[in-house]
Protein backbone atom coordinates (compact mmCIF):
# COMPACT_ATOMS: atom_id res chain seq x y z
CA UNK A 1 0.00 0.00 0.00
CA UNK A 2 1.37 3.41 -0.88
CA UNK A 3 2.05 5.94 1.88
CA UNK A 4 -0.54 8.60 2.67
CA UNK A 5 -0.74 11.66 4.91
CA UNK A 6 -3.83 13.24 6.49
CA UNK A 7 -4.57 16.93 5.99
CA UNK A 8 -6.87 18.41 8.63
CA UNK A 9 -8.27 21.51 6.95
CA UNK A 10 -10.33 24.30 8.49
CA UNK A 11 -13.45 24.66 6.30
CA UNK A 12 -15.91 27.54 6.30
CA UNK A 13 -18.71 28.01 3.83
CA UNK A 14 -20.38 31.38 4.52
CA UNK A 15 -23.59 30.22 2.80
CA UNK A 16 -24.11 27.25 5.11
CA UNK A 17 -21.80 27.29 8.15
CA UNK A 18 -22.28 29.38 11.27
CA UNK A 19 -18.63 28.77 12.21
CA UNK A 20 -15.58 27.01 10.75
CA UNK A 21 -14.96 23.30 11.32
CA UNK A 22 -12.15 20.85 10.49
CA UNK A 23 -12.40 18.31 7.70
CA UNK A 24 -9.78 15.58 7.18
CA UNK A 25 -8.54 14.30 3.81
CA UNK A 26 -6.16 11.41 3.11
CA UNK A 27 -3.74 12.33 0.34
CA UNK A 28 -0.79 10.45 -1.20
CA UNK A 29 2.55 11.19 0.44
CA UNK A 30 5.35 12.10 -1.94
CA UNK A 31 8.82 13.22 -0.95
CA UNK A 32 8.81 16.15 -3.36
CA UNK A 33 5.29 17.34 -2.55
CA UNK A 34 4.60 20.55 -0.70
CA UNK A 35 1.35 21.23 1.18
CA UNK A 36 0.07 23.14 -1.87
CA UNK A 37 0.48 19.97 -4.01
CA UNK A 38 -1.60 18.07 -1.47
CA UNK A 39 -4.30 20.80 -1.57
CA UNK A 40 -4.31 20.69 -5.38
CA UNK A 41 -4.72 16.90 -5.18
CA UNK A 42 -7.75 17.35 -2.93
CA UNK A 43 -9.22 20.01 -5.23
CA UNK A 44 -8.68 17.89 -8.38
CA UNK A 45 -9.56 14.42 -7.07
CA UNK A 46 -11.36 14.48 -3.73
CA UNK A 47 -13.34 17.68 -3.12
CA UNK A 48 -13.70 20.41 -5.73
CA UNK A 49 -15.40 22.75 -3.23
CA UNK A 50 -12.17 23.45 -1.29
CA UNK A 51 -11.16 27.12 -1.70
CA UNK A 52 -7.65 28.53 -1.34
CA UNK A 53 -5.44 31.08 -3.08
CA UNK A 54 -2.33 30.22 -5.04
CA UNK A 55 -0.59 31.20 -8.22
CA UNK A 56 3.12 30.72 -8.84
CA UNK A 57 4.06 27.63 -6.76
CA UNK A 58 7.56 29.04 -6.26
CA UNK A 59 7.46 31.50 -3.34
CA UNK A 60 7.25 34.58 -5.52
CA UNK A 61 3.58 35.59 -5.76
CA UNK A 62 2.82 35.50 -2.02
CA UNK A 63 -0.73 34.17 -2.51
CA UNK A 64 -0.64 30.81 -0.72
CA UNK A 65 0.10 31.82 2.89
CA UNK A 66 -1.63 29.60 5.47
CA UNK A 67 -1.22 28.39 9.03
CA UNK A 68 0.44 24.98 8.77
CA UNK A 69 0.56 23.19 12.13
CA UNK A 70 0.01 26.60 13.75
CA UNK A 71 2.88 28.36 11.99
CA UNK A 72 2.39 30.89 9.14
CA UNK A 73 3.95 29.42 5.97
CA UNK A 74 3.71 29.66 2.23
CA UNK A 75 2.06 26.33 1.38
CA UNK A 76 4.29 26.10 -1.73
CA UNK A 77 7.31 26.33 0.55
CA UNK A 78 6.23 23.72 3.14
CA UNK A 79 7.36 20.19 2.18
CA UNK A 80 5.30 17.26 3.49
CA UNK A 81 8.59 15.50 4.30
CA UNK A 82 9.42 18.18 6.89
CA UNK A 83 6.34 17.29 8.96
CA UNK A 84 6.84 14.16 11.01
CA UNK A 85 3.24 14.05 12.18
CA UNK A 86 0.84 11.79 10.29
CA UNK A 87 -1.69 14.62 10.41
CA UNK A 88 -0.91 18.12 9.12
CA UNK A 89 -3.27 20.86 10.24
CA UNK A 90 -3.98 23.57 7.65
CA UNK A 91 -5.84 26.76 8.59
CA UNK A 92 -6.30 30.21 7.04
CA UNK A 93 -3.80 32.88 8.15
CA UNK A 94 -4.41 34.09 11.71
CA UNK A 95 -5.57 37.65 12.44
CA UNK A 96 -7.63 37.98 9.25
CA UNK A 97 -11.35 37.29 8.77
CA UNK A 98 -12.10 34.11 6.81
CA UNK A 99 -13.85 34.71 3.49
CA UNK A 100 -14.22 30.98 2.75
CA UNK A 101 -12.14 27.91 3.71
CA UNK A 102 -8.47 28.95 3.48
CA UNK A 103 -9.19 32.28 1.78
CA UNK A 104 -8.83 35.34 4.04
CA UNK A 105 -10.21 38.87 3.68
CA UNK A 106 -7.17 41.10 3.12
CA UNK A 107 -8.93 44.44 2.48
CA UNK A 108 -7.59 45.89 5.74
CA UNK A 109 -4.00 45.17 4.64
CA UNK A 110 -4.50 46.79 1.24
CA UNK A 111 -5.78 49.94 2.99
CA UNK A 112 -2.84 49.97 5.41
CA UNK A 113 -0.38 49.41 2.58
CA UNK A 114 -1.70 52.35 0.56
CA UNK A 115 -1.79 54.53 3.70
CA UNK A 116 2.04 54.46 3.95
CA UNK A 117 2.43 55.65 0.33
CA UNK A 118 4.73 52.82 -0.80
CA UNK A 119 6.10 54.54 -3.89
CA UNK A 120 8.76 57.12 -4.75
CA UNK A 121 7.68 60.66 -3.92
CA UNK A 122 9.75 63.31 -5.69
CA UNK A 123 10.36 66.90 -4.70
CA UNK A 124 9.94 68.07 -8.23
CA UNK A 125 9.03 66.68 -11.62
CA UNK A 126 12.09 65.50 -13.53
CA UNK A 127 11.92 65.77 -17.30
CA UNK A 128 12.62 62.51 -19.16
CA UNK A 129 15.57 64.20 -20.84
CA UNK A 130 17.38 64.16 -17.45
CA UNK A 131 17.80 60.41 -17.92
CA UNK A 132 18.02 57.76 -15.21
CA UNK A 133 18.13 58.62 -11.54
CA UNK A 134 21.51 57.15 -10.66
CA UNK A 135 22.20 55.39 -7.39
CA UNK A 136 25.46 54.06 -5.97
CA UNK A 137 25.64 50.41 -4.81
CA UNK A 138 25.85 51.76 -1.25
CA UNK A 139 22.62 53.76 -1.67
CA UNK A 140 20.93 50.64 -3.06
CA UNK A 141 22.21 48.45 -0.21
CA UNK A 142 20.56 50.76 2.33
CA UNK A 143 17.07 49.53 1.38
CA UNK A 144 17.44 46.53 -0.95
CA UNK A 145 16.41 43.77 1.47
CA UNK A 146 13.09 45.52 2.11
CA UNK A 147 12.24 45.43 -1.61
CA UNK A 148 12.01 41.62 -1.38
CA UNK A 149 8.61 41.74 0.36
CA UNK A 150 5.92 39.83 -1.58
CA UNK A 151 2.97 40.92 0.61
CA UNK A 152 2.25 37.32 1.61
CA UNK A 153 0.98 38.48 5.05
CA UNK A 154 2.76 35.74 7.02
CA UNK A 155 4.19 38.50 9.23
CA UNK A 156 0.68 39.76 10.08
CA UNK A 157 -0.36 36.23 11.06
CA UNK A 158 2.75 35.82 13.25
CA UNK A 159 2.50 39.22 14.99
CA UNK A 160 0.46 39.10 18.22
CA UNK A 161 -0.02 42.87 18.09
CA UNK A 162 -1.82 42.49 14.73
CA UNK A 163 -4.21 40.06 16.41
CA UNK A 164 -4.77 42.24 19.47
CA UNK A 165 -5.20 45.57 17.64
CA UNK A 166 -6.73 45.38 14.18
CA UNK A 167 -5.73 48.99 13.49
CA UNK A 168 -1.98 48.33 13.85
CA UNK A 169 -0.43 49.25 10.47
CA UNK A 170 1.65 46.08 10.76
CA UNK A 171 5.07 44.73 9.76
CA UNK A 172 4.97 44.54 5.94
CA UNK A 173 3.46 48.02 5.41
CA UNK A 174 5.87 49.63 7.91
CA UNK A 175 8.86 47.81 6.36
CA UNK A 176 7.83 49.13 2.95
CA UNK A 177 7.47 52.66 4.31
CA UNK A 178 11.01 52.30 5.69
CA UNK A 179 12.20 50.99 2.31
CA UNK A 180 11.04 54.20 0.58
CA UNK A 181 12.25 56.45 3.41
CA UNK A 182 15.74 54.96 2.95
CA UNK A 183 15.73 55.38 -0.83
CA UNK A 184 18.01 58.23 -1.96
CA UNK A 185 15.54 59.07 -4.78
CA UNK A 186 12.64 59.58 -2.37
CA UNK A 187 11.54 62.77 -0.59
CA UNK A 188 8.29 61.49 0.93
CA UNK A 189 9.38 60.77 4.51
CA UNK A 190 7.34 63.60 6.01
CA UNK A 191 4.30 62.58 3.91
CA UNK A 192 4.44 59.11 5.48
CA UNK A 193 5.23 60.25 9.02
CA UNK A 194 1.60 60.84 10.07
CA UNK A 195 0.81 57.15 9.63
CA UNK A 196 4.22 55.58 10.28
CA UNK A 197 5.05 57.48 13.50
CA UNK A 198 1.51 57.36 14.91
CA UNK A 199 0.41 55.25 17.90
CA UNK A 200 -0.96 52.67 15.50
CA UNK A 201 2.20 52.83 13.41
CA UNK A 202 5.60 51.84 14.74
CA UNK A 203 4.69 52.58 18.37
CA UNK A 204 2.16 49.75 18.46
CA UNK A 205 5.05 47.33 17.87
CA UNK A 206 6.47 45.77 21.04
CA UNK A 207 9.36 44.04 19.25
CA UNK A 208 8.20 40.45 19.52
CA UNK A 209 10.27 39.82 16.39
CA UNK A 210 8.03 37.01 15.07
CA UNK A 211 7.47 38.89 11.78
CA UNK A 212 11.13 38.51 10.83
CA UNK A 213 11.24 34.86 11.99
CA UNK A 214 8.47 33.77 9.61
CA UNK A 215 9.33 35.92 6.55
CA UNK A 216 9.92 33.57 3.58
CA UNK A 217 11.92 36.27 1.73
CA UNK A 218 14.22 37.10 4.68
CA UNK A 219 12.99 40.66 4.88
CA UNK A 220 13.47 41.92 8.41
CA UNK A 221 10.36 43.98 9.26
CA UNK A 222 11.22 43.98 12.99
CA UNK A 223 14.50 45.75 12.19
CA UNK A 224 12.75 48.25 9.90
CA UNK A 225 10.24 49.13 12.63
CA UNK A 226 12.88 49.59 15.37
CA UNK A 227 14.98 51.77 13.06
CA UNK A 228 11.88 53.81 12.25
CA UNK A 229 11.21 54.27 15.98
CA UNK A 230 14.71 55.71 16.44
CA UNK A 231 14.37 57.96 13.35
CA UNK A 232 10.90 59.15 14.46
CA UNK A 233 12.20 59.94 17.96
CA UNK A 234 15.11 61.94 16.52
CA UNK A 235 12.71 63.84 14.22
CA UNK A 236 10.50 64.61 17.22
CA UNK A 237 13.50 65.83 19.23
CA UNK A 238 14.71 67.93 16.30
CA UNK A 239 11.27 69.52 15.92
CA UNK A 240 11.26 70.28 19.68
CA UNK A 241 14.76 71.80 19.76
CA UNK A 242 14.68 73.55 16.40
CA UNK A 243 11.10 74.60 15.70
CA UNK A 244 10.60 75.52 12.07
CA UNK A 245 13.61 73.50 10.88
CA UNK A 246 13.10 71.36 7.81
CA UNK A 247 12.84 67.65 8.64
Amino acid sequence: MSKTVALEILRYNPEVDSEPHFQTYEVPYKDDWVVLDALNHIKDHLDATLSYRWSCHMAVCGSCGMMINGEPKLSCHAFLRDYRDRVIRVEPLDHFPIERDLVIVMDSFIEKLSSVKPYLISNEERPLSDGEHLQTPLQLMAFKQYTQCINCLLCYAACPQCGLNENFVGPAALALAHRYNLDSRDHGKSDRADVVASNEGVWECTFVGACSDVCPKRVDPAAAIQQTKIAASLDWLKALMLPGAKR
Partner: peptide
Protein backbone atom coordinates in the same frame (compact mmCIF):
# COMPACT_ATOMS: atom_id res chain seq x y z
CA UNK B 1 -23.70 38.01 0.13
CA UNK B 2 -20.36 37.94 1.88
CA UNK B 3 -20.27 36.76 5.48
CA UNK B 4 -16.62 36.76 6.63
CA UNK B 5 -15.93 34.91 9.88
CA UNK B 6 -13.69 36.62 12.43
CA UNK B 7 -11.82 34.40 14.89
CA UNK B 8 -11.07 35.69 18.38
CA UNK B 9 -7.51 35.76 19.70
Amino acid sequence: SRRPYTRKV
